[in-house]
């Protein structure tokens, strides 16, 4: 039993996409799809050459937010989406009927269709790959050149994740809608 969470020091991100490739290699993600388990969000740059806004081109690495109140879990008619014992939002591909309610419900656009299994897929914190092998890091965390991510257990007061949440200012995405994400961005 744990309460898994991830901290993102997003200001370190250089948009190199090492995380995306590591995730695909580790978890056997389908190639050719427009969406994946993990991505780096970017916006169109503000301004006209040569007066461009640097903050407007900040990179936002993201993935499933593993909400404590996950809309995707609530709307799933077949319970294909469920919480595991560590608070990780999981999908049972066998139960998924591809109704796509969850994809509409997710405020973070974190879900996509895997056309091989004909089910909805998303990040599961490498729980059936790396964590199952006893590793303590996700693929995206381990490979990152600038060390954006830190994965750990919020319930363990001695974990690095807990320590950082106690000592550094952080925020969650769309905090006002009550989803209670377990992904925390460092200010």
């Amino acid at each position: 039993m744990a309460k898994y969470a991830m901290i993102l020091n997003y200001k370190n991100c250089i948009n190199c996409k090492a995380c995306e490739v590591a995730c695909k290699e580790e978890n056997g993600i389908e190639l050719g799809a427009k969406a994946h388990r993990i991505w780096v969000g970017t916006y169109d740059i503000e301004g006209k050459y040569p007066l461009l806004s640097i903050p407007s081109s900040t990179f936002y690495p993201s993935q499933c937010q593993h909400c404590a109140n996950a809309p995707c879990e609530e709307v799933c008619p077949t319970h294909a989406t469920y919480y595991d014992k560590n608070g990780v939002v999981q999908i049972d591909a066998q139960k998924c009927i591809l109704c796509s309610y969850c994809m509409v419900a997710c405020p973070y656009d974190a879900r996509y269709v895997d056309t091989r299994t004909m089910s909805v897929d998303k990040c599961n914190f490498c729980s059936d790959t790396r964590l199952a092998r006893g590793l303590k890091t996700t693929a995206c965390q381990a490979t990152c050149p600038t060390k954006v991510r830190l994965f750990g257990d919020m319930d363990d007061p001695n974990s690095e994740v807990s320590h950082i949440l106690r000592t550094k200012e952080h925020f969650t995405l769309k905090a006002g809608i009550g989803t209670e994400p377990r992904l925390f961005y460092i200010k």
């Binding site: 190199c16 290699e25 490979t143 060390k147």
Partner: peptide, 23 residues
Amino acid sequence: KLDPNPLFPKSKNMLCPRGNAGI
């Protein structure tokens, strides 16, 4: 899978997208 080897002072426990795609 290719993962970073944390022991190397030069690459400091990282592997870029190309390194991951070496497979």
